[in-house]
Amino acid sequence: MEKRRILTGITTTGIPHLGNYVGAIRPAIEASRDPSNESFYFLADLHALIKSHDPKRVDESRRAIAATWLALGLDTDTSVFYRQSDIPEITELTWLLTCVCSKGLMNRAHAYKAAVQENEAEGAESGKTVDPDKGITMGLFSYPVLMAADILMFNATDIPVGRDQIQHIEMARDMGQRFNHIYKGQFFTLPEARVDDEVAVLSGLDGRKMSKSYNNTIPLFETEKKLLKLIRKIKTNSLEPGEPKDTEGCTLFQIWQAFATADQVEYMRKRYEDGIGWGDMKNELFELINEQLKEPRARYEELMNDMGYVEEVLQKGALRAREEAAPTIDRLRKAVGFGSFA
């Protein structure tokens, strides 16, 4: 059976939180253990510059995310694990794709349209003329091209994404098809978006989606003391102990489901019917999560104090990634007329 090639990247602008773990890291590591898959995982540090011009923040995030993947058990012998910025072929491919990508396609990108709409709303509210492109960099405008290069560089077949990211995979397909058509060859495999509706999207402290943008996250490897403190901050309603509680729409129960076994979920569902107090629920949730993260947390702390080892792992990953990328970019250079004169 032909292997599927899975590719996942995490932007290095923050510290991994429970939502990142449940929604992306855990399922990716599970997929990497399937012998029918070839797995490529990377730190999307070039993408980070679109969101952050703070070098300290980007550097700290790169370190934390690399250590997180390794602490959680990613097997770097069977997976290719690398930093995006260590693969110069990706940036070269970005330019080749930029030259076949229509501006109209980029005009329709969700992030760009949202930024324009925000500027227009500001203008309408102030009654002043506001440039719709105010504050929008070319990085933000054209980052779907970089994302397409990440994917097409390795001819990835399956890209696990949330529904809000499907557009980017369609754009990558569009650019790949366009390049194949113009240069008359099958240079790129066209990727498919893989949306797993079973993967949980966690709510944060305030009930909204857990996100750095909302400042409502629970960092994955907080100390036990801080983890308990954050869980106790999760917003609940005013129902008293002894009053039956609804699991539907409850952030605490949703997070419990993401970490619990089927038996544990049914146990807690019964506890809700019996009117568990919010304090007791938060304590039980802490115990459940802390037990699962105790060993990875210790390993994470070890790795954060041994960046030499982490660097060695990433350098080996970069060599493997470039072994794939170099012949591909050489073929593409020849296709566009950049072959040697000799």
Rank of each mutant, 00 (worst) to 15 (best):
R5E: 00
I6M: 00
A24F: 12
I25D: 13
I25V: 12
P27G: 02
I29L: 06
E30W: 09
A31E: 06
N37P: 02
E38G: 00
S39C: 12
Y41H: 07
F42H: 01
L46E: 02
H47P: 00
K51R: 11
R62G: 02
I65G: 04
G73W: 13
S79I: 07
S79D: 05
D86Q: 12
I87S: 11
L97S: 08
V100C: 08
M106K: 10
R108T: 14
R108F: 12
Y112P: 04
V116Q: 08
E118R: 13
N119I: 09
P132S: 03
M138C: 05
G139I: 05
L140Y: 02
L146T: 01
M147F: 02
A149F: 04
I151W: 10
I151K: 06
I151P: 02
L152F: 07
F154C: 10
F154I: 02
N155L: 03
A156V: 08
T157D: 03
T157G: 04
I159F: 07
R163P: 13
Q165E: 12
Q167L: 13
Q167S: 08
H168S: 07
I169V: 15
E170Q: 15
M175D: 08
Q177Y: 15
Q177R: 15
R178C: 10
F179W: 14
N180W: 15
H181L: 15
Q186R: 15
F187D: 03
F187V: 01
F188H: 02
R194Q: 11
V199K: 05
V199E: 08
S203N: 14
L205Q: 04
M210V: 02
M210N: 03
S211I: 07
Y214G: 05
I218A: 11
I218K: 11
F221A: 10
E222A: 13
E224T: 07
E224S: 14
K226C: 08
L227N: 01
K229L: 14
I234V: 12
N237Q: 00
D246G: 04
T247P: 07
C250G: 06
C250A: 14
T251G: 09
F253L: 05
T261H: 11
A262F: 14
V265T: 08
Y267P: 00
R269D: 03
K270Y: 04
K270E: 13
D274P: 03
G275F: 09
G275W: 09
I276S: 04
G277V: 12
D280T: 13
N283Y: 10
N283R: 11
L285D: 00
K294N: 04
R297Y: 10
A298M: 14
E301N: 12
M304A: 03
D306V: 01
G308H: 07
G308E: 11
G308T: 06
Q315K: 12
Q315D: 09
G317M: 02
E324D: 09
E324V: 10
A325N: 07
A326R: 15
P327H: 13
R331Q: 13
R333D: 04
K334T: 10
K334Q: 10
K334G: 06
V336C: 00
G339W: 12
S340E: 14
F341D: 11
